[in-house]
Design a protein around this nucleic acid. Structure first.
Length: 878
RNA sequence: GCGGGUGUGGCGGAAUUGGUAGACGCGACGGACUCAAAAUCCGUUUCUGGUGACAGAGUGUCGGUUCGAGUCCGACCACCCGCACCA
């Protein structure tokens, strides 16, 4: 029977409508089944979806559909990370309102996502730029403020001169703004901060509980938080060298054990002591000025050579009144870490050694490695940073560095100077507070009013939300809210006098730090969350499986972890602290690049041919030769992008989805190739041919597993694959599941063809029928439209596949009755031995030794040893 | 510099964690069907030698542990990612 080709263009919209009509993916909060929350990172509405989205949302959809088939009440929502600078740039360049631009993009992208056939609950859709969303964010900002989690303070902040706004530390990459790529400058400004550092320890400890997160991400966060244990240590200044009014220098050190190896002190250029000393020393003042200027750009700071300037100040060693050390101002000491001052121990710190060598300062090793003679141990070019034994350290000699650390800490803690101990233990974090002020329009307004008399005053609850004005102009550079003629002028809520609104908006990472909580009840108009649904016994959080790009390993994921804790502290969630129980970071979609005489060329314009075994590219239009470049992340600048719309239009969504899941492990990059898509499409057609052929042959046949004859092999394979595919999806090993589905198809195709020729009894047919139904259910999460079409062709028993349960495999069929042992001689495989699965070791040994190739190898001698691992292997040692 | 990861056919990648290396897919080659092509179907496809059955080699390199190593240990090489004067 000739069957028509599967036509995705007509089938896919048909089934999407059928799912909508049944409201299959709308989730009820009070559904009693076990809850499963699967979430993909929501997109920025840039205009069109790209292949990265297709990959991300396909994976999430497979998980959602699979969990649904396994009896879970699945929450799988979608929304829009809708605030951000591109909308303002579009407004400036094209004279459109950011709101209109954003909403138009959302409409387009929503349409594109719908063509993918994702099982999303669109009734919960949210956009962060809607006042109905950001009003709650403003409320939480004020709640956080009241709870001491928000602070307005002056600080040295990162200024992006292109985007004309400040940036958080996390948004500065290699000294450049994360979006603009412009070198970031340091400015002193008063800004709003979330006090993320108040939760440093909790954020660090929480990482240990996240066993379903990639190790890599946990390590990155751990390093970013950067905890160290050390000592705050005060050094007395030698009186005759101290500037007026100064008597001591406090440093932070993690190596107090090396205190006898100290040879100098170094302070940051901004350190108060440096400023004081510079007052009477013009050359020092000039040096400090120079260092400060160099410090404007973070990028130049990193490559700078280590330089210093002797202030003339001397400090007295805590354990030796007669030992004085020089105090330098050094360009490599940071003011905002520790106390902005260090003691230099050149023997055991490379920077200090470089510095000491440059300025001729003494180098005394105080820790020696194991097995080295103390008298001969010297440090010249390379500092020794490892463990060992204390030397040249008086009362510390012979101790381990750990013990010496404790000894020094204890001794100096007991020395009280000026009412304070000379040293205190101190845990220091690298993490800084989260700067959230942005001098931009298209963001959530900070709900604060500045009054000359009352200071910064919260906007009262009944005046929320503070909405963005619509009539803004982007003609002038800078912040349109600040330029707006009336918006910022208002009355002080406290005293009623004229006052000004804060014209800054919040970092857009604030918007994405709680959207996952909002999805649990987006209809709540009075509060950000509904406590009954957000977490706890009947709540959704934490997200069971979160999927997104690794580029958010620190930014979004760290902020969300903080925000969840802050929401708990302010009563917006019940108990949850870690918002994402399972995290998966998927790889990128990459593609070959093509370069012609006049620059980069898109894949759609290129024809690829194979000439003498070599791939050659030429321009489709006129045959101009094109150079095939390296495989890179799809980007507009390299033009190596493939538009999901084009793929879906020509092959259908299922082909695109299947390709995204095939071959490449999901955490790795996937190389998009034309040949690969065609291969995926061929499989779509192959499944359809198989099912439509079988549908007529097996009409009326009741599916059942066979336990004997040819059908038994079919049933065994089908049940094994059913088990395997389920496990693969559970572990997100989609590529392995795909391979198994191919294998099952490879078994079923000839089986169906055989039935077509009239071979096979009833039990065989029943087994094939069952295997085919398994196959259709198994492809359901991956290629949902094709699965529906196939299911309908097979009779459509029980309605839509999307509503079917995942079948349960029969354990007895998954186990073979016989086992084929590979038989090795001296560790090399020489043959097989098929024997009953329950044969005991003696029986296996006897049978193995009876094999002719074993006898030949042994040449009548007795084997030295026979190793039998049940259900594994036989190894005969001759 | 520090931290993490990866390295397997022409290519993407499998290998129940110490037990048959190369599943599955792509590509290539040969054949069938066709006037022809596309599509489809059937074979072959790690390398070397041999018509062949077969033999030998083989998971970045070198060494080690083991009856047995892609997997464990030691040293090294290459590439990728993250952090980077954090005291």
């Amino acid at each position: 029977m000739a069957t028509e080709r599967y036509n995705a263009r007509t089938s896919e919209p048909k089934w999407q409508k059928a799912w909508d009509a049944e409201k299959l993916f709308e989730t009820k909060n009070d559904d009693p089944r076990p809850k499963y929350y699967v979430l993909e990172m929501f997109p920025y509405p840039s205009g069109r979806i790209h292949m990265g989205h297709v990959r991300n949302y396909t994976m999430g959809d497979v998980v959602a559909r699979f969990r649904r088939a396994n009896g879970c009440n699945v929450l799988h929502p979608m929304g829009w990370d809708a605030f951000g600078l591109p909308a303002e740039n579009a407004a400036r360049d094209n004279k459109v309102n950011p709101r209109d631009w954003t909403h138009a993009n959302i409409a387009t992208m929503k349409g594109q996502l719908k063509t993918m056939g994702l099982s999303l609950d669109w009734t919960r859709e949210i956009a962060t730029c809607d006042p109905s969303y950001y009003r709650h964010q403003q409320k939480m900002f004020l709640d956080f403020w009241q709870s001491g989690l928000v602070e307005r303070k002056a600080a040295k902040v990162n200024w992006d001169p292109v985007d004309m706004t400040v940036l958080a530390n996390e948004q500065v990459i290699d000294g450049r703004g994360w979006r603009s790529g412009a070198p970031v400058e340091q400015r002193d400004l008063t800004q709003w901060f979330f006090k993320i550092t108040s939760m440093s320890q909790s954020l660090l400890d929480g990482l240990d509980t996240l066993d379903r997160w990639p190790e890599k991400v946990r390590i990155m966060q751990q390093n970013w938080i950067g905890r160290s244990e050390g000592l705050l240590l005060r050094w007395a200044l030698a009186e005759d060298t101290a500037p007026a009014g100064e008597s001591e220098l406090e440093v932070y050190t993690t190596r107090p054990d090396t205190i006898f190896g100290a040879s100098f002190m170094a302070v940051a250029a901004d350190h108060p002591l440096a400023r004081k000393a510079a007052e009477t020393n013009p050359r020092l003042a000039a040096f400090i000025d120079e260092v400060r200027h160099m410090g404007t750009s973070v990028a130049t700071l990193e490559t700078a050579e280590k330089r210093g300037f002797d202030t003339g100040i001397r400090v007295i060693h805590p354990f030796d009144k007669n030992w004085t050390l020089p105090v330098y101002v050094a360009n490599f000491v940071l003011m905002d870490y520790g106390t902005g001052a260090i003691f230099g121990c050149p023997g055991h710190d490379q920077r200090d050694l470089d510095f000491a060598n440059k300025y001729g300062l003494p180098v005394t090793p105080v820790v020696k490695p194991e097995g080295v003679d103390a008298a001969n141990f010297q440090v010249t070019e390379e500092a020794y940073g490892d463990d060992g034994t204390m030397i040249n350290s008086r009362f510390l000699d012979g101790m381990t560095p750990d013990a010496a650390f404790n000894d020094v800490a204890t001794r100096l803690a007991g020395v009280i100077i000026g009412g304070r101990p000379q040293a205190e233990r101190k845990v220091q974090f690298r993490l800084r507070d989260w700067l959230i002020s942005r001098q931009r329009y298209w963001g959530c307004p900070i709900p604060v009013i500045h009054c000359d008399d009352c200071g910064a005053v919260p906007v009262p609850n009944d005046q929320l939300p503070v909405e963005l004005p619509v009539d803004v102009s982007f003609d002038k550079p800078g912040n349109p809210l600040d330029h707006h003629p009336t918006w910022k002028h208002t009355a002080c809520p406290k005293c009623g006098k004229p006052a000004r609104r804060d014209t800054d908006t919040m970092d857009t990472f604030v918007d994405s730090s709680w959207y996952f909580a909002r999805f649990t009840d987006p209809w709540n108009a009075t509060a950000p969350t509904t406590l009954a649904y957000v977490d706890g016994k009947n709540g959704w959080l934490p997200v069971s499986q979160y999927i997104g790009g690794v580029e958010h390993a620190i930014l979004h994921l760290l902020y969300s972890r903080f925000f969840t804790r802050a929401m708990k502290a302010t009563g917006h969630v019940n108990a949850v602290e870690e918002p994402f129980e399972g995290l998966f970071t998927q790889g990128m979609v990459v593609h070959e690049t093509y370069k012609g005489p006049s620059g980069w060329v898109t894949p759609a314009e290129v024809k690829i041919e194979e000439v003498d075994g070599k791939r050659k590219a030429s321009l489709l239009a006129d045959g101009t030769p094109i150079a095939i470049g390296p495989i890179e992340k799809m980007s507009k600048s390299k033009k190596n992008v493939v538009d999901p719309d084009d793929i879906i239009a020509s092959y259908g969504a299922d082909t695109a989805r299947w390709f995204m899941l095939s071959d490449s492990p999901p955490e790795r990059d996937v190389i998009w190739t034309e040949a690969g898509v065609e291969g995926a499409h061929r499989f779509v057609q192959r499944i359809w041919r198989l099912i439509s052929e079988a549908a007529s042959l097996l009409e009326g046949v009741e599916p059942a597993a066979a336990d004997a004859g040819a059908g038994a092999t079919i049933s065994q394979t089908a049940h094994k694959m059913l088990k395997g595919v389920g496990e693969d999806i559970e572990r997100l090993h989609f590529n392995k599941g795909v391979a198994r589905i191919y294998e099952l198809t490879n078994v079923l195709s000839p089986a169906v063809a055989e039935i077509g020729t009239g071979v096979g009894d009833a039990s065989h047919k029943a087994a094939v029928r069952q295997a085919l139904e398994f196959l259709v259910v198994m492809i359901g999460p991956m290629m949902p439209h094709l699965a529906e079409e196939c299911w309908a062709a097979l009779g459509g028993k029980g309605g839509l596949v999307a509503a079917q349960s995942w079948p349960i495999f029969d354990p007895t069929l998954v186990m073979d009755n016989e086992f084929t042992y590979p038989v090795q001689i001296n560790g090399k495989k020489r043959g097989d031995l098929t024997i009953a699965r329950d044969a005991d070791q003696a029986a296996v040994e006897k049978a193995a030794l009876g094999l002719d190739f074993v006898q030949k190898a042994l040449e009548d001698r007795a084997p030295r040893k026979v190793i039998i691992v049940p259900q594994r292997i036989v190894n005969v040692v001759a």
